[in-house]
Write a protein that binds this DNA or RNA. Structure first.
Lengths: 174, 174
DNA sequence: CTCCAATTATTGATGCGTCAAGTTACGACC
DNA sequence: GGTCGTAACTTGACGCATCAATAATTGGAG
């Protein structure tokens, strides 16, 4: 199911592009999650967190810095680090300089697990995306995704359609 | 953060493509969710479900048919329909022909809400993706996503690494 | 020095998605 | 006409994400 029927004005090319993109949006994250989970028992986000720590000096970062590095939230990261700590993949300690802050460190066990997990994940990425595309397609993909990202991070949000009562977003009786 | 540092062999074009794709994967679904939630109080999946019903004969489908039409699961759909039913957006009734089956129907209230929600959502899709791309880019996007989808739905899964391959290149001190 | 606003992080509640089990109904076989 | 296997859903439990509220600490204004 898609928006195809909702958008009669969508021409053939637009329709194909949109259907393809939504398909990838639905399937690719799941495929990567599945592979990582099966091979390493890690969430993709956990993998990203551990990988960020791996290349940090002393394998250590502040929570807030790690949240920024992983495009995440402090809240989310805190929950995830709690779980990772229970599994002895990271260690948390109060930061010496600023006692509000806490430093997260990749444990040696975490490093081992991460190093074991990485090759298979990279292989998946290559198999599913990179090696499946020609150099020209890769160039196009880079080009197109950068354009879309520009839209997504563009400050000028048109605030499309609050033609309805803004106070009650879901309950206005027609 | 990305895999860039993990894949020294990744050339410039590959790296740009992968970074762009992961960026879109992270941001686009959230952007669409946010818009729909704000303007209509609907999840994207709820929107898809209601839209599927909208164009069905008598605005009615069997659960299993609706699950298939929305690329979903019976379980997921059941939960979602329970919530939608509480909000009077759909109605469920035992199917006359087969008493195991249940028919879901878009209520008139649901139809009104859906019709109010649709234009803004389409506008978002156009603004964020379709209208932002040139015809050539749209063609490329269709082309590339179809290639990736072919990989994703390809039966030949290489079973990448149950054999834990310690072929890891670099290793900073810890 | 003290008070207060801002920074940093954690916790608890809630919502959605998935998995495993359970329930009801159909169909066919003996 | 029982009962056995299967189909169509539903339910409950658990995991992860987000939001709102809280705690602890810092830095600066007076």
């Amino acid at each position: 199911m898609s928006l195809k029927r909702l958008v009669p004005r969508m021409d053939e090319s637009e329709s194909r592009a949109w259907l393809g993109l939504t398909g990838v949006l639905q399937l690719l994250p799941g495929a990567l999650e599945t592979q990582l989970q099966r091979d390493a028992g890690l969430t993709h986000f956990e993998f990203v967190v551990l990988s960020a720590l791996r290349f940090a000096p002393d394998s250590t970062m502040r929570m807030s810095a790690l949240a920024a590095a992983t495009d995440s939230t402090l809240t989310r990261l805190s929950h995830v680090c709690s779980r990772l700590e229970k599994r002895d993949l990271v260690e948390r300690s109060s930061s010496p300089g600023d006692k509000r802050a806490t430093d997260v460190r990749l444990s040696s066990h975490g490093r081992r697990e991460l190093i074991l997990a990485t090759p298979a994940h990279i292989a998946s990425v290559r198999r599913l995306v990179i090696d499946a595309l020609t150099p020209e397609q890769l160039e196009s993909l880079a080009n197109v995704t950068e354009t879309i990202l520009a839209q997504l991070t563009d400050g000028t949000h048109c605030e499309t359609a609050l033609t309805r009562d803004p106070a009650s977003p879901s309950e206005p009786a027609g």
